[in-house]
């Protein structure tokens, strides 16, 4: 259905160009609609969504559709489109995503979820395209996932209960007992025993240094951390929603002058969006400007 929508748009554009030709040159030809994400080559990639360099790239307005194929599904539509711009310096690729979201959701707690967005690329830029929904066995995808929660930690929100519930009264944590500080490392070791996810290095446990997780998947339900956690990101509230920059290394096989596919997803925390409950795009053609290396 979504492919159909994209196809219809392309067809209508073609019909429009044909009509303009038939009617002669008396009317100005409207600019051809943007049908792909074009990553414009620049010398240095911007790190903030406000950077003027973003003006050098064309905006692609990607329609968002419900993830309604795999349970748990999202049943009620949220944001309808995400505006995407892309830049590359030949080594990395930066995406600027902007979408409407009336509420800022950066707290995660019981029944509270974070706003987020993600960029997905096929691991291999060849013709054997993986399924757009998280890839498929043998055809993995790479995902860079930004969350408003992690952004809030980077922006200075303390990672403690008081930041979630300012009036919370905490009696005691055993690893903060007086005397423990006399043995170096003892308190930290005790605290770890009560935080198994952190002890295991789970990347969802808050890490104030990074707002983007590098993930990979080869089908719904298979997402896992990528071997390298090298993507970066920065998100800012706009008047109407979010503007987020996600910068990641170019995937293997993709270089200036090359093409691939890209897909996006956004989550609205106050709609209960989490995991597969999200608004997503289909695969969108991705072109990198610049000369191909011989």
């Amino acid at each position: 259905m979504a492919y159909g929508r994209l196809g219809r748009r392309t067809w209508m554009a073609a019909a429009g160009v044909l009509a303009a030709g038939l009617w002669g040159c008396s009317r100005p030809v409207p600019p051809a609609p943007v049908t792909e994400v074009r990553a414009v080559q620049v010398a240095a990639l911007p790190s903030t969504p406000e950077d003027a360099q973003w003006g050098s790239g064309e905006a692609f307005r990607a329609p968002l559709i419900l993830q309604d194929m795999v349970e748990p599904r999202k049943m009620v539509a949220g944001a309808t489109e995400v505006t995407v711009r892309a830049l590359t310096d030949g080594k990395s690729i930066a995406f600027r995503l902007e979408w409407a979201d009336a509420t800022e959701d950066s707290v995660r707690d019981a029944a509270r979820f974070t706003d987020a967005c993600a960029v997905q690329l096929p691991s291999n830029s060849g013709p054997d395209t993986p399924a757009p929904q998280m890839g498929e066995p043998g055809r993995p995808v790479e995902i860079a996932f930004w969350t408003a929660t992690a952004q809030a930690f980077i922006d200075g929100r303390p990672d403690d209960l008081k930041s979630l519930h300012p009036n919370a009264n905490i009696d005691h944590y055993p690893f903060e007992a007086p005397g423990l500080e006399k043995t170096p490392g003892k308190a930290e070791e005790m605290a770890k025993q009560y935080a198994p996810a952190k002890s295991l290095g789970n990347i969802v446990s808050p890490s104030p240094k990074k707002s983007v997780q590098d993930l990979m998947a080869d089908g719904p339900g298979t997402m896992r951390p990528a071997p390298s956690q090298s993507s970066t990101g920065l998100g800012r509230r706009t008047g109407a929603g979010w503007a987020v920059v996600i910068t990641r290394p170019l995937p293997s096989g993709l270089a200036p002058g090359g093409t691939s596919l890209v897909a996006f997803a956004v989550w609205n925390g106050s709609d209960g969006d989490v995991g597969g409950r999200k608004m997503r795009t289909v695969w969108i053609p991705l072109t990198l400007t610049g000369a191909k290396k011989p």
């Binding site: 707290v107 995660r108 019981a110 198994p196 996810a197 789970n202 969802v204 446990s205 808050p206």
Partner: peptide
């Protein structure tokens, strides 16, 4: 099953 907001996982 409980969500732990400090580890970001359910326990």
């Amino acid at each position: 099953v409980f969500f732990n907001p400090m580890t970001g996982t359910s326990e």
